[in-house]
Amino acid sequence: MGDAGGTVTVLVPAVLAQHTGDRRELTVQVPGTTTVAELLDVLARDYPIFGRRVRNEAGAIRRYVNCYLDGEDIRGLDGTGTRVQAGQQLLLIQSVAGG
């Protein structure tokens, strides 16, 4: 973890906002740098149902949830091990099936 702290903004899709008190934008205090997994751990602690909708029992992001850090898909980076710094934005998008 880095030494300078700050916040990371997490943008939540409408379909998941019902599990975050209808908040579509969450601000998470971070100690400089952290990982996507650690950031999601904080959110899961504060919003347990949200946490279960985003990650499976093993802690992996569910296949129907896409996660972008400053516009880059974390699957093309280091997955949930991707480093996150204060000032960055994490966007979660949940696929919705329909027919």
Rank of each mutant, 00 (worst) to 15 (best):
L40K: 04
G99I: 03
Q94N: 06
L43D: 00
G2H: 10
R24E: 11
G81P: 07
V54Q: 00
A58P: 01
T80Q: 04
L77E: 12
V54W: 03
R52K: 02
L11Y: 09
D73Q: 10
E38M: 04
P48M: 02
G87P: 05
V42I: 14
D73M: 03
M1Q: 11
T20S: 09
V42F: 00
R83E: 12
G32T: 01
R24Y: 06
Q18M: 10
G99A: 04
D22K: 10
L39R: 08
G81Q: 15
E57G: 08
N66K: 10
V30N: 08
D22S: 11
T20C: 06
E72S: 13
Q18L: 11
G32C: 00
L26S: 02
R53V: 09
L90G: 11
T9M: 12
L39N: 01
I74K: 04
A97Q: 15
D22P: 00
T80P: 01
Y64D: 13
N56C: 02
V15I: 14
Y47W: 12
Q94D: 03
C67F: 04
N66V: 05
D41T: 12
A14C: 07
T20M: 08
T35M: 07
Q29S: 13
E57L: 11
L90S: 06
L40W: 02
R75I: 00
M1N: 12
M1G: 15
G76K: 14
E38T: 09
G21K: 10
L92E: 11
E72T: 11
D3C: 03
V65P: 01
Q88V: 03
D3E: 07
D22R: 08
F50M: 07
L26F: 03
Q88A: 14
G6H: 10
R63W: 07
F50E: 00
D78V: 00
A60L: 13
I93Q: 14
P48K: 08
G76R: 15
A17S: 15
L26N: 04
Y64M: 11
A97V: 05
T33N: 12
G99S: 11
T34S: 13
T35G: 00
L91Y: 09
E72W: 05
L92M: 07
R62S: 03
A37P: 01
G81E: 13
Y47G: 02
T35A: 02
L39I: 08
G98P: 05
G71V: 06
V84Y: 04
T27M: 07
I93H: 11
T35N: 07
L90T: 05
G76F: 14
G6P: 11
Y64E: 14
V65L: 09
V36M: 06
I61F: 05
R83H: 13
Q18V: 13
L69E: 08
G71Q: 07
L77H: 12
C67W: 04
V12K: 09
Q94H: 07
Q89C: 11
L11H: 13
P13Q: 04
M1D: 10
I74H: 02
V30S: 08
A37L: 09
D41N: 14
T35S: 15
L11A: 10
G79V: 00
A58T: 12
V36H: 02
A97R: 12
Y64R: 05
R63P: 03
Y68W: 09
A58V: 13
L43M: 02
G6V: 05
T33R: 15
V8E: 06
A44W: 03
L69K: 00
D3I: 09
Y47K: 08
L91R: 15
T20Q: 06
E25G: 09
L77C: 04
V8D: 02
G2K: 12
A4S: 12
A17L: 01
